[in-house]
Design a protein around this nucleic acid. Structure first.
Lengths: 194, 194, 194, 194
DNA sequence: GATGAATGAGAATTCATTCAT
DNA sequence: TATGAATGAATTCTCATTCAT
């Protein structure tokens, strides 16, 4: 009944080419706020400001949506890490910089950090998410190793991962100074060194 | 534990004084198998071999059940850690022993380990669970510090926590030797040391 | 009302544009038969001949459904009252007509009457229903006052309301003649008048 | 195992001979607060401060409990009415006194009034409750007729019943003066009379 | 292509009632 | 006699997913 020019359609058609991305972003936001279990088609649609049907149209199942969203969150996270490393002056004090990175992850970038840990644990029971999780670990190790050596890199990656996790829940959270001391120890100073 | 005499009755009255504990245990098992999101009254009842109504009778809400179960899981975990420390000979090689502890957490005690990490992340969005999580952290720090010093204790706790988490997902998982090297570095050897 | 052509499809898509209304009507019917407490999603779905999920889709909560249904019942009731008044000849005998209205409310329109009283009492504990209840009262007063005067209107409204309620339960119910005598007294005749 | 003296029992036995009455009273209180639908064994037991099992022990079913409680509430109500009438001086102004009675029912005795109307409507769908309801009606009629005549008594009873019901929900409630005017009209003054 | 109405499966929770003690 | 642990049936509500439009 409508003309070939399509003028008759009522808001249908590819109204928003970035729709898919918008939905995935909304899913990440929902994970940050309510955790993986809080991700429902309804919640994501509301957060994205798109119709309910749109979420099921762009992502066949909720697991697909979650996988794409968390994959993207992990990639963003890795990109942020690389940027941190690139901006690091060659003679920077690594302990200080690492402590700073931890604190940023607990404050400004808390939402992204929380998503990262949600991803970790979700991956324990969802094999499709494992690649994204291990990708983050590998990036951490690689980055830290590039400034030290292979074993220290792994130590720093593990300590970083554990510290952030503990700090996310600690009340009160550890101070910058405390965190710095821990990394300094990992980097080889001994008690009594200054 | 019940005598054959009792098998015929149909479940009214105080049939099983340990019923509450049994349900909490089943909840932990479900968390280990399917994650926190997999904990439903139905799943727990099935795992515990009790009627559905029994779970809601003993635990007013699912959150109550989860809180009790995870609290208990954390306590058990801490008890195991303390036992490990108690059994440690004074001149044991700490790096070796820690690596061993990690490996045990990934193999024999994998279920308990998974529960611990589920607890962590669940606590991010459920304040009532925080105490149990931070309790585990504190125990780790205290234990490791008692064998070294305050800062090294915190480093070891963070590295332990991060290593286990990464290793739970890594494929292939790190070897005992690799893990040992990492702890050895945390304990102060330098590249090139033997 | 639907053509034979449509009977085969299995209910997805906008099969029945009047679905919402149908459900609300069914809720009213359930109130009439079993009272407000008898209103459950199941009962309404069965009465409406729609799937259970349909009732929760169209009405977020049972309270919403009840509010809409009772509001509608009250409006219908008021409309019927207005019609009664409109059809009243100017020189009609008000006592007779009122008695007739009461009797109709106890017989042909008993279901609607019962719903009205259920609404009243339900409103005692559910503030959202109050408006619908007081709307009915106001309509009664206004109608009766328009044929008499303000005070008599209120007296008639109260007497009408009370009489119907008592008569709904009385066994045997009062006769038309008895009711008429009561209204006649309200309208000012004195014992001994004819 | 316990001695014949019964000293060994742990709170069992007829600890409280008025237990049955206490439970019925609590049920009435629950009806006043939450309506008939709010009456559950749990709610009543809590309100009465007795163990859950006690309610099922003294009243075989919940309907029994409700029937006894509402019957008692109606009897108390009738007793209060009779008292009102007995205390009425022979030359009291009936309109004033009735208005006063209405206002008391809306204020000090609001809980009892609410229960009365809950009873009415509950009786619509529960035949066993009808006797209690009609008993209240009959008492009203009888009382008011004893001060006037048969027809006026019925008019007053109906108006009283309707007025109270409407006033329970009206916002703002009618004033004492307004109510008095209505009863005065029922008692035969004409517009313009003083 | 895009939507949202529709629905069935299953979630948490409530509760009357039973019955061993 | 009195109790409360136990349970199953039913309740409200949520939601992934489907599909007519």
């Amino acid at each position: 009944m409508s003309t070939g020019k399509d003028l008759g359609r009522r808001g249908r058609g590819p109204t928003d080419p970035a729709r898919r991305k918008k939905i995935a972003d909304a899913a990440i936001a929902v994970v940050a706020e309510r955790g993986v279990e809080g991700v429902t088609h309804r919640a994501v649609a509301a957060a994205a400001g798109v119709p309910l049907g749109s979420t099921t149209y762009h992502f066949a199942t909720l697991d697909d949506l979650l996988a794409v969203a968390l994959q993207r969150a992990a990639e963003d996270n890795i990109a942020r890490l690389r940027e941190w490393e690139r901006d690091l002056s060659p003679d920077a004090d690594l302990a200080t910089e690492l402590a700073d990175l931890v604190v940023r992850g607990l404050t400004e970038e808390r939402a992204e950090t929380v998503v990262e840990y949600e991803l970790y644990v979700a991956a324990l029971h969802r094999p499709p998410l494992r690649r994204a999780s291990t990708g983050w670990d590998d990036a951490l190790v690689e980055l830290f190793a590039s400034r030290t050596d292979a074993v220290t890199g792994r130590l720093l990656a593990a300590a970083f991962c554990g510290l952030v996790m503990q700090a996310l829940l600690a009340d009160p959270p550890p101070t910058l100074t405390e965190i710095e001391a821990i990394f300094r120890r990992a980097l080889g100073d001994r008690p009594g060194d200054h």
